[in-house]
Design a protein around this nucleic acid. Structure first.
Lengths: 214, 214
DNA sequence: CGAACTTTTGAACCCCTTCAACATCAGTGG
DNA sequence: CCACTGATGTTGAAGGGGTTCAAAAGTTCG
């Protein structure tokens, strides 16, 4: 499991953060508000500065797949060609820096920036590939364990927070909310994790969690 | 569904093919032979010139996920940082051009080449994201239909060939070979496709197939 | 032809879903 | 402060889609 969300090894190194700060527009989004919609022109790039964002895609009958979650420091909106292939929504009230692709292109000579965006895209690919294995070949319990591990490695504090609800977790893992809930209960009963409310947990047995994740 | 495998809109435009021809070493691999293994140094890039290749990843208990299939013209081995995160194996006897990353780096000034590799990686990300939706939220029948559609759009002839066996299809779609086989029979019974042996088919009802794929 | 492998088909089982009820929590206003 | 309300999360029981196990049918290649 990668440490893609670890702030220290992050998608947007400080140099890029600086550039975003300088060129970008600061915006706030309320919970569930849309940063952009599927098929929108992809002329903007976003950097989360607080809160969290999800990218999703819908089937015509309403089935939903959450592709990824993004946290402070992450770049959102890279996953596209000319048009966005996902929609992006705020998981909770959050602030982002928005910058036009064209503004960034003006700095194309800046190798460091190019490199940062390239690195972020490459890591996005790696994360998505990791996710493929989870969705394709893991059991419900292993899926939930993988998700908790991912969060725990991102938020290195002992108390890990979950900014998303059960439905978002379910749509991320290809499960139902009921199954997610049951697996969480199960993992807690096995003393692998301990929940404090529905949105905060602590890992009690790293070895057991790691084994389920592979 | 993208046309990522369509030769005309391909990952490796002719200019890159030329460069690969000039710098690369031609190699042949027998069916099931390994181009590279998981965790190998990723210092080589491959271009398939004939045959087909799969990239796979294993869980410790043997469960396998096929990440992608690659055909003539496709670049393989881009999905990595310093080490390969998948193994790559020949689906059938095939020939590839192999070139050192460092050799290509010597041409880093060549914007067209950089751009081609960037484009190939971006398309790889898009394909993987499409695959996420299939694995996470589609039924067995829709998964198989999605796969057939993908192949049919790649191989635009009326007789579409399947270079991979049922096990590879199953591991690509997160199913068992039995389920794949049953769904294929079902799609044929519904006159959506028609098989000629187990490795060749023809789409009879594009509308029906497209609807299952979304 | 005959052996080994792949694919298909059948039947029983099980993991996850579905449907339903209950619990918990946050926010609101009396 | 507490009752009310809607949203969110948990738990239970029944059902179904896909898996598992087994065997037959088809294919490949010596």
């Amino acid at each position: 499991m990668t440490l893609a969300y670890d702030v220290d090894t992050h998608a947007a190194p400080s140099r890029v953060s600086e550039l975003m700060e300088r060129l970008g527009l600061r915006m706030t989004f309320a919970k569930d508000e849309e940063l952009y919609a599927q098929d929108d022109d992809a002329d903007l790039i976003y950097m989360v500065t607080s809160g969290a964002v999800r990218t999703t895609r819908l089937l015509s009958d309403g089935r939903r797949q959450v592709s990824a979650f993004y946290y402070a420091g992450d770049l959102v909106g890279l996953e596209t060609g000319p048009a966005h292939r996902f929609s992006a929504e705020a998981l909770c009230d959050c602030t982002v820096l928005v910058v036009k692709r064209s503004s960034l292109k003006a700095f194309a000579g800046d190798g460091e920036l190019d490199r940062a965006i390239w690195e972020a895209t490459r890591r996005e690919l790696e994360r998505t590939q990791d996710h493929l294995l989870v969705l394709g070949r893991k059991t419900a319990c292993e899926k939930v364990a993988s998700f908790l591990m991912e969060r725990a490695q991102s938020d290195r504090s002992t108390k890990v927070s979950l900014p998303m609800g059960r439905q978002d977790m379910a749509d991320y893992l290809g499960l139902t909310i009921e199954t997610v809930s049951r697996m969480l209960t199960q993992l807690q009963s096995a003393s692998v994790v301990e929940f404090d409310g529905s949105r905060h947990f602590r890992v009690k047995r790293w070895d057991a969690l790691a084994q389920m994740v592979e």
